[in-house]
Design a protein around this nucleic acid. Sequence first.
DNA 1: CATGAATGAGGGTTCATTCAT
DNA 2: AATGAATGAACCCTCATTCAT
Lengths: 202, 202, 202, 202
Amino acid sequence: MARLPAGQRREDYITAAVQIIAERGVHGATTRRIAERAQAPLASLHYCFHTKEELFLAIYDDMAASQMRDGFHVREGSGLGRAAAALLRQIAAWFATEDVYAQAQLELFFWVLRQDSDLGKQVYQVHLDRLEGLLRQGLRPDDDVKLVEVLARALASVADGLVPQWLTFKDPVMRDTTVDVIAESLERLADAHRIPQTTAAG
Amino acid sequence: MARLPAGQRREDYITAAVQIIAERGVHGATTRRIAERAQAPLASLHYCFHTKEELFLAIYDDMAASQMRDGFHVREGSGLGRAAAALLRQIAAWFATEDVYAQAQLELFFWVLRQDSDLGKQVYQVHLDRLEGLLRQGLRPDDDVKLVEVLARALASVADGLVPQWLTFKDPVMRDTTVDVIAESLERLADAHRIPQTTAAG
Amino acid sequence: MARLPAGQRREDYITAAVQIIAERGVHGATTRRIAERAQAPLASLHYCFHTKEELFLAIYDDMAASQMRDGFHVREGSGLGRAAAALLRQIAAWFATEDVYAQAQLELFFWVLRQDSDLGKQVYQVHLDRLEGLLRQGLRPDDDVKLVEVLARALASVADGLVPQWLTFKDPVMRDTTVDVIAESLERLADAHRIPQTTAAG
Amino acid sequence: MARLPAGQRREDYITAAVQIIAERGVHGATTRRIAERAQAPLASLHYCFHTKEELFLAIYDDMAASQMRDGFHVREGSGLGRAAAALLRQIAAWFATEDVYAQAQLELFFWVLRQDSDLGKQVYQVHLDRLEGLLRQGLRPDDDVKLVEVLARALASVADGLVPQWLTFKDPVMRDTTVDVIAESLERLADAHRIPQTTAAG
DNA sequence: CATGAATGAGGGTTCATTCAT
DNA sequence: AATGAATGAACCCTCATTCAT
């Protein structure tokens, strides 16, 4: 087995772990299977991560980085409602292509929550902050700023909830119609909460 | 340990299994721990269910029955939007009190999906049908019937997605505001899709 | 592999463990090797003893029982010195035939001492008490009773110290001469501490 | 980690190994722990000694040198019995201050014996020769020279046997009384074996 | 029928060692 | 020559399951 530097190996293990978790669940994600999938030695896994727990935790750092790359975006000043709707559609599209990843993420999150509930909070909060930031980019003057935080939470929830449904039916039409109805709902809500602007003219 | 007929034991094992899964995840739900929690012999577990897999699958039959009992309800003719909003609030309230159960359900669902994706579909569909039925009770003449199915799916998604958020922060205010914003969104959507009725008078 | 009751297995494991410890030291006494030597399943070892530590500790109970059987003895009223000398010779003879056992016992004792120093004290004290009891049987009226306890400790020390020497040279002459000189020494000491008895006659 | 020549490292590893063996037994003396204690690279350990076995064997060379330094001594012409008694007391005193070292030595000796029984003999014999030499210094004209060898063996045994007792109870009074009784015994023996000298006058 | 007792297979981890520089 | 990095083999233990009664 070729001797490879730990830096390179780390990513292989993480990728392999995500795959295995998606395929067989956290339960079925054994170190041996992960190593085998990564085509790397079992001992090196512990050299890179020391502990299986550490590997699983490391996946989150990787996810954070990769999500930055995935580049969800919001058009500046498109309006809060539109921004929320657009984001939801982007997230849903990402799920469709990376469903394996999405499932692993959700299962792992439950695992993290049980290992260290504080870390769970932290991880979730990072996610929320990111969504908030994106939503804020879409703000228009007459949008209700107080909605941003709640909408971020709503988006996070809705997104998580889409995962099981998509994984179950793998039906694009079903997914799109579900997403559309929620997207439209959020958009309408935001629009309804517009704050009437006093015009300069008298 | 009292010798009991297998029939009576089954429920004890199922109850114990749900508890253990909730506490320690599917990963930590070992037959030994389940048997211990059920205060029943380990061998009898295999006598009742033959396999651990079978036990886990059996939980779903039990859940179906118990959810019927949980009695979510919709006021007749309250309107589709109101019905959806009301249902979401009921589900969220149920989560708050039975969060352990809800987490177990979601984790187990991923497990089922991997064991037998067809069963996963079936289980999810039963869930959707139930939600549809409830929504239909709220229908008013001017509601758009075509919305019922999608709304059911939206509800199912949103509900699943609330579980991780609630389990993470266990913050009632956070939960309520998130729920409120989604509930209001769905209500607005349904209202917006009202079909203008031609009155009989002319 | 034939299914055998745990009771029988326990002794097999203990016997095997003692052999392996003697052959390869506490370090080399792995559960696999012990199970293999016992011609019994590895899992059953943990069924019988739960832990390797427990197995090692169990050896002491077995030793206590077997030493009772080995029946060191002291002739009543033979005199304290003679008793000590006789005991030392018996112990030395036992070492010669059961040297494997003796070495294992000593190595294990160091192990016990590190695991649980209180248990170490207890184990050693039991040993001392047994030697004291035997010495006391040999007491004659003019023996110094205060010597019994110290002599027991001296005997215990000397006996332990004979093990490495015997194991190293396995030379019966060497052993016997070493034993003789110590035996005679102790005998002389006890004799020298005789308490002059006042005779009835005047 | 500073790059040091192998020659200098050797002693650090040996010192560290002895410490670790004393603290955790031969079993717990892993190369990693030894290297860590020596504050030296793990790979260098194998560069210096090639094998863990070689390191352990090297300890004996070091011990031989260090024991010479410990400087047990016997007053010239003090008499064989006195010399034996004095030596025993010195050895016991050394144990008390260096008990950790003494335990390591004894455990390691068993280990050596298993690896290479011839080396074990050699090591023990060196020890005996040294004791003999010391005893011989105490000889008086009327001492029985034939006793020297056997007394050396008795001393070696007794000394080894004191180690477990001291480590178990760490009770100075206990140790001193045990030592005293043995010391006195040996002294009495030697005295009893004095050879009556024919005086020149007649 | 129901269960205490027993086990093959596999779990995560750590070991002494070797490679590559 | 000396060492950070990497690994095959083996560690102890627990798993779901089956046997024997």
